[in-house]
Structures are given as C-alpha cells and as structure tokens.
Computed example of a mutant assay.
Amino acid sequence: MRIVNQKDFAAGAIYVLAGGGFGIGAFNYTIGEAARMGPGYFPLCVGVLLVPGRAGHHGHRRAPPRGHRRPEAARPARRRRILGAVTLFGLLLQPAGLVVALAVLVVVSSMASHAFRWKGTLLNMVVLVAFSIGVFIEGINLQLPLWPTFLR
C-alpha cells in the first residue's frame, strides 16, 4: 500500500485511535441498550462511528471546477472571527448572562460574513435570544443567569 497523502493518512490514524479509545473505554461502564442507555452507550457509539470514518478514502481528489471559490467559513479571517465569537460566548455566559452572551455571539459571528447587515443581525439576535430563553430557561429549567451580575 502506498500512502498518497500524508495529511489524510495522519487524520485517518487519529480518527481510528480516537474511535478505538472511545470504544474500549466505553466497556468500563454499563452499555445498556437503545431503550435504556447506560453511561457507556454514547462513548461506544462515538467510537464505532469514528473508526471507519476514513476507511474508504484512498487519497484520490478531483481538482475543483474552474472559478471555484472556497466557502466563506473556510477563509482564515472568517474562521478566527467565528471561533472568537464562540469563545466569547463561553467566557461571558456566567458573568454577563445569557442575553448579553448570545448578543455578542450573534454580532461577532455575523461580522464574519461578507453579507453583514445590522438589520438582519439584530433581528437574528432577538429571535435567538427569545428562542433560547423559551427553550433553556422556561422549557427545561436550565439554571443560567439571564442578566449580568451587577443587574441581578
């Protein structure tokens, strides 16, 4: 067997090792069954899904069609802005509350788009905040702060 692409081979090896680790580690817990899942059920499923993930890939790639553009999320500056938005959300959630953290998440990640418009961003923010409060706070009674600590 000849390895055509070293990066693909390394990625496949990492998937196989991670999947094997999850699968073997799951047997330290009760697996259960689909109707009554034990704590080892999910790690076993993750392991089973990761192991064959790269098995059918042989490194043959077609060249992109002429005039092909990379997706917007694949551009490095946009990727950094989106990852920064998610990181800010995680850092702001406890001290600033859900409303402020979601507002920052939506505004910063929306700025990563070339089609950024304030009107659409603010509408998206209002809908996402209302939906999140309805589902997570009212629906499943998740104990998250809604507002910053100085307003509580």
Rank of each mutant, 00 (worst) to 15 (best):
G38L: 12
A34T: 14
A35V: 04
I14P: 01
A34Y: 11
Y41L: 03
G20P: 00
R36W: 04
P39W: 04
Y41G: 00
A18V: 13
V46H: 07
G12L: 05
P39R: 05
G47F: 11
A10K: 06
G25C: 06
A34V: 11
A18Y: 05
P52C: 09
L44Q: 01
L49Q: 10
A55T: 13
V16Q: 00
F42Y: 12
Y15S: 11
A18M: 15
I14L: 15
G38A: 11
Y29K: 07
F22P: 02
L50W: 01
V48H: 05
I14N: 10
G32T: 11
M37N: 06
G23E: 06
A10V: 09
I31A: 01
A11Y: 07
T30I: 15
G21R: 07
T30W: 10
F27R: 11
I31Y: 00
G20C: 13
G20Q: 11
G25R: 05
P39A: 03
L17F: 12
G21Y: 08
V46D: 05
L49M: 15
A35W: 00
Y15Q: 09
L50C: 14
G12S: 13
F9M: 05
A10H: 07
G23T: 03
G12W: 04
E33I: 12
A13T: 11
V16T: 09
I24E: 03
R54E: 08
Y15L: 14
A11Q: 10
G40W: 04
G21T: 14
C45W: 12
Y29G: 01
I24C: 08
L49V: 15
C45S: 10
G20F: 13
A18P: 00
C45Y: 08
A11P: 01
N28Y: 13
N28H: 14
A35K: 10
G19Y: 07
L50G: 05
I31C: 02
V46Y: 07
N28I: 14
Y15T: 02
A35Y: 04
G40N: 02
A34Q: 05
A10T: 12
G20E: 13
L50V: 06
A35F: 00
A35S: 10
L50Y: 03
A55D: 02
Y41N: 01
G20S: 15
R36G: 00
A18E: 02
L50M: 15
G40V: 02
G12R: 02
L17E: 01
M37K: 12
G23I: 03
A18T: 12
G12K: 07
Y41H: 03
L17V: 15
C45R: 07
G53C: 13
C45I: 14
G12E: 09
G12I: 09
Y29V: 01
E33G: 13
G19S: 10
R36T: 11
A26V: 04
F9C: 06
Y15F: 15
P52K: 13
P52D: 10
R54K: 14
G47Y: 05
A55C: 13
C45E: 05
Y15I: 01
I31V: 14
A34I: 15
G40T: 03
D8V: 05
